[in-house]
Design a protein around this nucleic acid. Sequence first.
DNA 1: CATCGTTATTCATTATTAAGCATAACGATA
DNA 2: TATCGTTATGCTTAATAATGAATAACGATG
Lengths: 115, 115
Amino acid sequence: MSNIELKVEGRIWINAGTINFVGDGKIHLLEKIKELGSLRKASLEMKMSYRQAWGQINKMNLVYNKPLVVLHRGGKDGGIAELTAFGEKIITIQKELHREFELFLDFQSKKIQNV
Amino acid sequence: MSNIELKVEGRIWINAGTINFVGDGKIHLLEKIKELGSLRKASLEMKMSYRQAWGQINKMNLVYNKPLVVLHRGGKDGGIAELTAFGEKIITIQKELHREFELFLDFQSKKIQNV
DNA sequence: CATCGTTATTCATTATTAAGCATAACGATA
DNA sequence: TATCGTTATGCTTAATAATGAATAACGATG
């Protein structure tokens, strides 16, 4: 036994079939879009490239048959990005999932103490 | 709702402090070492470079204060790689962990059907 | 119908990671 | 003490991923 603590960690995500659908990163991006109404601003706040953010949203919208975000270009403010009801639902689901996963990890971590 | 099935997936591993200690890949490597008694043969069977395999074992042995594998060079067969009792214990722990994680994933996957 | 800030997309560049080559060190055995 | 297959380790190259510049398209508004 060492003085260093062993800890169980992990990542979870949701697949649609065999293709990655959403994970923590995309959920965070969805939340930022909801907050800011702009994909560009959301990507800036998350310190990721707009290119990557757009690609993720685009993929997310295509993988499943329901869009999570609707993007409009042009108009008064140049364009907007808005979350759909389905997008909101996915956020809720993933956050609950994440919460349960944290409990799982804590429980498993406790079990491997004193190895 | 789409005809494509949503499924919760994920990965887990064990950290020693903030540093990655073991995950599925390293566990698989440990099992191969136990089976073959050779790091080189184990790396070949896993289709990974010996360089990488050695690096992983080396790191694993250093991160915690107990070695999981003892490597000997020279001798009749050129050298041997043998698992320590601690190494065996870690395999057991991680496999049990993995089993429980699979149950967790299945349970969570069922919960998100019919979204 | 010009403006503006956004979405949409390509492409060259950079950064990060992995792979593979080369070679020394080792020590039981014959 | 020569041999052999392994461990030990640096270094070069290849593969992959991420970044960022550049630019077109868009449409409500004034």
